[in-house]
Amino acid sequence: MAEPFFRSSAPSPRRSRQGKLLAMMLAVGLHLLLLSFIAFSVRWKVGEPSPLLVDLVAAPQAAHTQLAKNPDPTPGPQPAPKPEPKPEPAPPKPEPRPEPPKPLPEPKPEPKPEPPKPAPAPPPKPEPPKAEPKPSALEKPDIALKEEAKKPEPKKEPPKEEPKKEPPKPEKEPPKPEPKKPEPKKEPPLDDFAKLAEARLRQQSPNAPAQTPSTGGAPGGPSEQARATYIDQIRAKVRGNIVVPPGVQGNPEAVFIVDQLPDGTVINVRLVQSSGNPALDAALERAIRRSSPLPLPEDKRLFERTLTLKLRPLAQ
C-alpha cells in the first residue's frame, strides 16, 4: 500500500540539466567580454605626462628660443630693467631741460636780477611748486621719450620742439598761479625755472635722497646688481617648488606681491598680474608659500617687506 504510493508520487524529473553548462559559459563569457572591453577600449590615462617630460628635457631649448624671439621676457634681466628705467628717464630730463633754460633766460634777462625772490617764494609755496614741476617733468620726459622712440637719431629736433612747447606752458601756468596768488605775476615763470633747476640739481647730484622715496627699497645704483641677485635667489628657490600644472603653454609670466617678515617668512602672497592660466597662478602662489623662509639678501638694506616678484614656471 504505502510503497507503490510513495514510488508513484515521487516522479520528480529534474530537467534542464543541459542548461547548467550553457548558463555557466554564458556568464563567464559575458564577464570576459566586459572585462576585455573595459581593459582595451576604456583607457583612463592621464594624458599630461608627455608634455611634462618634454618640459623637463627641453627646458633650456625653450628658454633659448624665447630669448631669440624676444630678449626681454627673461626673468633674470627683467628685475634689472625695473629699477633701471627709473634712472634712465632721469638723464633725458636733464638733457632737454638744460637747453630750454638757456633759450629762455635769453629772452627774459630780467628774472636773473630777481633770483633773491625765488628763495623766499619757495617757503610759502612748498606744495604747489612740487606739484607743478612734477607734472611738467612727467609730461616732458614722456614727450621726449616718445619723440626719442620715434626718432632716436635726431636729438636736436626735440629741443627745438620743446622750446616751442615750453613757452605755451609758462603761458598756461601763469593763469594757474594767478587765481591763487595774483601778486607775483612775473615770479611764477621764475619759480618754475628755479624749481626746474632745483629738480635738476636734485636729480643730478643727490640721487639717493630723491629716488629713495620714489622707488622705495631700491637704494642707489651700486646695489642694483646685488638686488638682482637677491631677486634671482628668491626666484630660484621658488622655482624649485613649482609644480607646473598640466596644460601650460609656453613660459608665461605672473607678477606677485609678497609680504615677508625680516627672517624671510612669507606672510601674504597677492597676485598682481596673472599669467593667463589660473591653475598656473595658483601653482606659483603655492610655490612661493612653500619656499617660505625666502633667502635673505647679503646686503641687509636690500631687504623689502613687500617684494614685487615676477615669476615664470621655467628657468631661462
Partner: peptide, 10 residues
C-alpha cells in the same frame, strides 16, 4: 549571472 541565465532558461 550564471543563475540569471539558468533562470532565464528555466
Amino acid at each position: 549571472w550564471y543563475w540569471i541565465f539558468r533562470k532565464i532558461f528555466q
